[in-house]
């Protein structure tokens, strides 16, 4: 139960961080969104075997977290959730790509192993970039900007409501799990034979709750447009940040800065 409660607190803590007043929080939301998207595209498009070049891109999340005064722990904890997905995506590379790439201290390193690490690093970087965006920009502002770059309203609404409903789902799980455990003394979690019914009921109950929340939002004028989150026009400082950061990121992507820096040493 403590885990569920912790998860709910982490979700809320990210939204609270977005209310900060640092230089990054005060940047125009469109600038942050564009830079985040650019960063994700550049990271994902990196050569899967060029880990040294890729690692240089760590500068972006590290510097942003420092400037935005975001504590590392909650962000890293949330990022860990994504790692199993990259693990399973990358493990097949180790199995199927056995071509030898290099030897380190007599240990053979295959291209499969390198691409496994590459996938993991890419996951860490991209998830961190998105988490930093959420921790420095309010959800309505992100939604407004997504709509203004013509992302379909249906998709934006799905993303935002899913985010809102995570806490509903967790609360529902917590209640149902407690009720289940109280009626199965000595049990160690939900039995496999009950899992189907448990998940099915959870889904139905979550639908009901989600529907009520949606109605409550509609009753208070929600129409999915987030017009109230319309920010001020982009200022010159925002342009400088956008162009400067974009230039640096593109340089890192197309030039191996690790080698260039190394050549000076």
């Amino acid at each position: 139960m403590a885990n569920i409660s912790d998860s709910m607190n982490t979700i809320n803590s990210l939204e609270e961080m977005a209310e900060g007043k640092t230089i990054i929080h005060q940047l125009h939301p469109m600038v942050k969104l564009v830079i985040t998207l650019l960063y994700i595209v550049l990271v994902v498009s990196f050569d899967p075997y060029n880990i040294t070049g890729l690692v240089v891109l760590a500068f972006y999340p590290v510097i942003l977290m420092a400037l935005a005064e975001i504590p590392y722990k909650p962000l890293l904890t949330r990022m860990l959730v994504a790692l199993p997905f990259s693990f399973f995506a990358g493990i097949s590379n180790i199995i199927f790509n056995q071509k030898l790439a290099l030897m380190i201290g007599g240990i053979p390193i295959t291209y499969g192993v390198i691409s496994f690490f590459s996938i993991t690093i890419k996951t860490v970087f991209t998830v961190m970039a998105v988490l930093i965006l959420i921790a420095t920009t309010s959800l309505p502002q992100i939604s407004y900007q997504l709509l203004s770059i013509k992302v379909p309203k249906l998709i934006v609404e799905q993303i935002m409501l899913t985010y809102r409903y995570i806490s509903v789902l967790l609360e529902q799980v917590s209640n149902m799990y407690t009720a289940y455990m109280l009626r199965s003394p000595g049990g160690k979690g939900i039995k496999m034979k009950d899992m189907g019914i448990f998940v099915g009921q959870l889904l139905l109950k979550s639908f009901d709750r989600a529907e009520n929340i949606y109605y409550a939002m509609k009753c208070r004028g929600y129409d999915g447009h987030y017009l109230y989150a319309k920010p001020d026009p982009i200022k010159s400082a925002d342009w400088i940040f956008l162009l400067g950061t974009a230039f640096l990121l593109i340089m890192m992507r197309f030039f191996d800065l690790s080698q260039i820096i190394g050549s000076f040493l």
């Binding site: 809320n12 939204e15 609270e16 809102r164 806490s167 609360e171 709750r209 009520n212 929340i213 109605y215 409550a216 939002m217 509609k218 009753c219 208070r220 004028g221 129409d223």
Partner: peptide, 21 residues
């Protein structure tokens, strides 16, 4: 839209209504 400006509704379960931080 206009109806909902004139009529408000308080739901039975306040958790359905309160969802911000």
């Amino acid at each position: 839209k206009d109806v909902r400006k004139k009529v408000g509704m308080v739901f039975q379960n306040p958790d359905d209504q309160l969802f911000m931080t």
